[in-house]
Amino acid sequence: MKKKSEKKKRILRLIAIPVAFCLLLYLAVFAVGYPMFSDILSIGSVFLSDKQVDYSKEYENIFVPTGDSKDTVDASEVEFPGINKQFGDLKIKGRNVDAKLFFGDGDIALRNGVGVYAGSFVPGYGKTILVAGHNNTYFNGLKNVKKGDVVTIRTSWGNYKYKINKTAILKDTDKKAFDLSADEENLVLYTCYPFDTLGLTEKRFFVYADKISGPEIVGLYE
């Protein structure tokens, strides 16, 4: 009788301990790595659902491609984008960079393309444009860029070209990586470094470019 109960306990222990351990570990990993788990849940829903995932419905697209650009465009003709709105696209010819351009650099923007930090400015404003993109998707091609390459940004109010003048690998907290108070139009693209790395890294690959063409937005200030 005693032997039977001991055996039962042993079997119970063999099942309960790993299960409890597994659950506790899962909770701990979940708490620490929630951002990654949201991706897992999302891919899980892809396996469980027979519907095709359509990310295009999670944002508004206000981008209407335009032809040749003038030298200037009046502010009244510019529809300034709100956060999470696609207002253009960004390409670097021959370097495998071709992405939708959003205002704001949150999850929605970076899942669907690349995003302009809302504390910087849109092209034509004459100030800093700071653009983020994932290193394993839309900005993976930044690893191929060279000094002199041209970045093309198309918006509804004009098409812009920027010439790359340098690249740099810096820490994400480096305050000298860009200047948000600059009064000269400059484009800064960045992504996590090393390329193809998984998870969080404190280094970023920055690409700096100067404006070479595209309409200046005039009549911004009364």
């Binding site: 956060i83 899942r111 994932h134 394993n136 994400d172």
Partner: peptide, 24 residues
Amino acid sequence: DVVIDESGNVVKATGAGDEAVPMT
């Protein structure tokens, strides 16, 4: 809708897009 968001760092974490999911 978010109008101003200064709740995170200026430089974002850009190291894990959807393509990283299978590996994760």
